[in-house]
Design a protein around this nucleic acid. Structure first.
Length: 842
RNA sequence: GGGCGAUUAGCUCAGUUGGUUAGAGCACCUGCCUUACAAGCAGGGGGUCGGGAGUUCGAGUCUCUCAUCGCCCACCA
């Protein structure tokens, strides 16, 4: 027998291992239609947070739903090597042991990193298990696997041969802490306090100077010109003259360039081609020298003269002091401006001239834009609006810097010998070639994930069967990083979209709406939630608390109320199981027919909303059905005449509908049902059956419930006590006559004819007529409440009369609706009549 | 500067192609330990859907506009 209370720990214990061992997670039944999802691979060094829990829960719901619907459901697990993130952690650990990681031998370092990876991968496996995810572990992949690495090399080589990958000197975003290049997407712009430093650049041979404002004065060592706008009358006569670069005291030219905006600042810009993307362009237009003034670690190099060796910010201070001393500093204007920071290390990014590998984006992006115009080939975003996010990115994107000065990742398949370059799948045979030491951006391999995990570039059976994937589930925050890149790589290398649907969810926020983050310390560990409320509670909360694409506030109260819901389900099942042995199958009563109707309508609605990814609607549909229709109504109404078959059918249906959301508790209860199969996981999803829909009977029971509520209401407001007599005067008399026993039980009333003359009588006014109640006590009718009810009834009648006399409405509204209105009007009019006669007696 | 989202009950959120005095959870009020459940049962109160205008027989739902908050992209010498 079930315990009185739902115990999530006991329920969840051991089930996952059992499912896994029995092979329920495995895919590959070729007689079934395939359905495939690949998990967004978590960073191998990370710990799964609530966002992962949400993301994976949604996928598991889809997979379990499809599996129960007779699909060969494949959910591929896997992890991402997460280049910078992992390397930073491994390095930090080594440094804490007093080891300088960069002084190590690369292969030794890699050994340590791999060990680290194994350890952390294990953590993630444990967390996936805790979340109940039905992943097909036989297909698990890692982005640095040999197969995936081969896919990476193939893509690199092919793009190179097509001219879509090139190596060039460009201004890139440099992370001086991680000492690597970054892509634009890895730079986070933050508003910070800074200043415009106004510096005197004396015009050669005069005592006049130009007021040059800069936010990064230390870059002046790399200045090779000063620019003014050719149309700027204040300065354009100066074009061709020179200024004296402060401190350095060398001459640099004044050039005319449209980059200088006369409206902005002083209208004069210093040009530092090696340290600013715009200046780089200006430099190219005017053939200026590009002087790099920093070392990769953010310290100044020899071009900074006496400042060599100082950190860039230290140099800034020292330089400003010197400028001040030499009366070259005009003023310091404090401003707030946005400055790029490294996504991973959070240090200020330095625009830096560097030789890197790039993907030429325009042709690849155009292909996506073209493909999205084809209804049958496009990636369908849910909600649709996120397609704009992708398309916009495709329109404005520019070349993707893919080389990283790291060790952890796919080493670039390019080899150099003197000034020759070789790009290929394998190293050249001849002596003397040296492989590029850099690795590829992590996202370069993630972009291939939907097909590389299925064996591409080999033409595997899996690839043919499961590609394109049916759906990809991820948060809107990584559309630019990942979804976009998978889409263009998918099209380029498979000629297909990587997935048909792309289900987008939002971000998890804390209770007061802030993003969860380490620095705020407001993160919630899903494992803690599972410990306290169980995995099923967490999953149901995550999946049903918000509509698609919207953010979700984590609210422990809601998880708690989900637990209560499960406890309710638990106890309803407990009731059924406690009684089931003594029950028999009987002919269906109208009450049975009512719940069968409700159940099948539920199946129909739930199925529809599952197909549309509307899990929040599914959640409230099931919740209301279980609590209100099944527990509050059916179980109570049927207590006099319970029907074994119906009770079991309804419970089993509920369990199956809920199973994708709450795998554990539904399995636990399912196993206790008399005819259960080996696991609910592999049982068949409920199907709508119109033979179990009885509209007429069902509508009668709706009325019965309505009448019972009326009686209970009257009972409480008049203090009937627990024994009073009802006399039926309804237009639908049969209803009460047929259900006297039930009404008595549920309202504590009797239908005796033995009415004492001293009893007080009260008329209970329902939509279907009057029921008179006789009870031993004082009359307790509140005339004001009657009048209040009368007023609102009159208003409603007037509203309806107006509506029904409106020709536009009569002619254009659906006939059934008009008919409904007429009926309601009639009901209300009779009720008003009764009410008026009641009031008259006062 | 461009784009997107939000604004509905005290709080957190739903509200499916416009269908007619708006739903849930939590909180609140009243009465109940009724043998499935007091983490429960029964009954109840509470919002006119950010402001304004429009389309329509009918708008929380469509259009325009304003306001507030948030996010994304771009720019910021």
């Amino acid at each position: 027998m079930l315990d009185k209370k739902y115990n999530h720990k006991q329920v969840e214990d051991g089930k996952y291992e059992n499912w896994k061992n029995k092979g329920y997670f495995a895919s590959g039944d070729l007689s079934l239609k395939p359905y495939a999802i690949v998990i967004p691979p978590p960073n191998v060094t990370g710990r799964l947070h609530l966002g992962h829990a949400w993301d994976t829960t949604l996928q598991d719901i889809l997979i379990r739903y499809k599996r129960m619907n007779g699909y060969d459901a494949l959910w591929i697990p896997g992890m991402d090597h997460a280049g910078i993130a992992t390397q930073a952690k491994v390095d930090a650990k080594l440094r804490s042991e007093g080891i300088d990681p960069r002084s190590m031998d690369r292969s030794k370092w890699l050994n340590i990193a791999w060990k680290w990876k194994e350890e952390y991968a294990e953590n993630i496996h444990n967390q996936w298990a805790k979340l109940g995810l039905s992943l097909d572990y036989s297909k698990e992949r890692f982005t640095l696997d040999e197969g995936l690495s081969k896919a990476v090399r193939k893509v690199f080589v092919d793009l190179y041969n097509k001219g879509l990958i090139y190596r060039g000197e460009r201004i890139i975003n440099w992370d001086p802490l991680a000492m690597t290049a970054l892509s634009n997407e890895e730079v986070i712009y933050k508003e910070v306090k800074g200043a415009f430093y106004h510096i005197k650049y004396y015009i050669e041979g005069t005592n006049d100077y130009l007021d040059v404002a800069t936010t990064r004065p230390e870059t002046l060592f790399g200045d090779t010109a000063v620019a003014v706008n050719p149309s700027d009358k204040r300065y354009n006569k100066l074009i061709g003259k020179n200024v004296i670069l402060p401190i350095v005291k060398k001459l640099i030219p004044i050039v005319g360039d449209i980059h200088a905006d006369p409206e902005f600042g002083t209208g004069v810009v210093k040009i530092t081609p090696a340290h600013d993307p715009n200046d780089f362009e200006v430099g190219n237009r005017h053939n200026l020298e590009k002087i790099i003034i920093m070392n990769p670690n953010g310290t100044m190099n020899k071009n900074a003269g006496k400042y060599e060796g100082m950190d860039r910010f230290e140099c800034r201070e020292a330089l400003l002091n010197d400028l001040q001393d030499q009366d070259l500093l005009i003023n310091i204007e404090e401003i707030t401006h946005s400055v790029g920071h490294s996504e991973r290390t959070d240090v200020m990014v330095e625009p830096y001239l560097s030789k890197q590998w790039f993907v030429k984006m325009r042709p690849l992006a155009n292909r996506v834009l073209e493909n999205q115009k084809d209804k049958d080939k496009k990636v369908n975003f849910i909600p649709e609006r996120y397609e704009k996010t992708m398309n916009h990115w495709m329109e404005i994107t520019y070349d993707w810097c893919i080389s990283r000065q790291l060790w952890w990742g796919h080493q670039i398949p390019a080899w150099y010998k003197e000034d020759k370059v070789y790009v290929g799948m394998e190293a050249p045979k001849e002596e003397g070639w040296v492989q590029d030491p850099d690795v590829l951006d992590t996202w370069f391999s993630s972009a291939l994930w939907p097909f590389s995990t299925l064996g591409w570039p080999e033409e595997t059976e899996d690839l043919k069967r499961y590609y394109p994937n049916n759906v990809l589930v991820t948060g809107y925050d990584i559309i630019p990083f990942w979804v976009n890149r998978m889409t263009f790589q998918g099209l380029e290398f498979t000629d297909k979209r990587p997935f048909k649907d792309c289900l987008i969810h939002g971000l998890i926020r804390d209770k007061i709406g802030r993003k969860m983050s380490k620095s705020l310390g407001n993160g919630v560990d899903p494992m803690d939630v599972i410990e306290e409320y169980g995995c099923d509670s967490l999953r149901f909360f995550l999946a049903t608390s918000t509509s698609p694409g919207m953010d979700l506030r984590y609210d422990e109260e809601k998880v708690k109320s989900t637990w209560n819901f499960i406890n309710k389900l638990w106890n309803a099942s407990r009731y059924v199981l406690m009684n089931i042995e003594n029950l028999e199958d009987k002919e269906l009563t109208n009450i049975d027919k009512w719940i069968l109707t409700k159940t099948n309508n539920l199946i129909s609605n739930v199925t529809k909303h599952m197909e549309n990814y509307e899990f929040n609607v599914v959640g409230s549909e099931i919740y209301n059905f279980v609590w209100t229709d099944f527990c509050d109504s059916y179980i109570e109404l049927s207590k006099i005449e319970p029907n074994k078959k119906v009770l079991l059918y309804v419970v089993e249906t509920i369990l199956k509908l809920l199973h994708p959301f709450m795998p554990y508790v539904t399995e636990e209860i399912y196993q206790m049902l008399p005819d259960s199969k080996e696991s609910i996981m592999i049982s068949t999803y409920p199907k709508y059956d119109n033979k179990k829909v009885f509209d007429k009977e069902s509508s009668d029971i709706d009325k019965l419930i309505d009448i019972i509520t009326n009686i209970r209401n009257a009972r409480q407001s008049n203090n009937f006590g627990s024994n009073y007599i009802l006399v039926n005067n309804l237009k639908i008399k049969y209803l009460i006559d047929d259900y006297k026993d039930i009404i008595s039980k549920l309202t504590k009333a009797s239908f005796s004819t033995d009415i004492n003359d001293n009893f007080t009588s009260v008329d209970i006014i329902t939509n279907y007529g009057i029921i008179t109640a006789y009870y031993d006590g004082n009359k307790n009718i509140d005339i004001t409440s009657l009048i209040k009810e009368k007023t609102s009834l009159e208003n409603s009648i007037n509203r309806r009369k107006n509506l029904l006399s409106n020709e536009g409405y009569i002619n254009k509204a659906p006939a059934s609706l008009v008919e409904q209105e007429r009926e309601k009007l009639k009901e209300e009019e009779t009720k008003l009549e009764i009410l008026n006669s009641k009031i008259a007696t006062f």
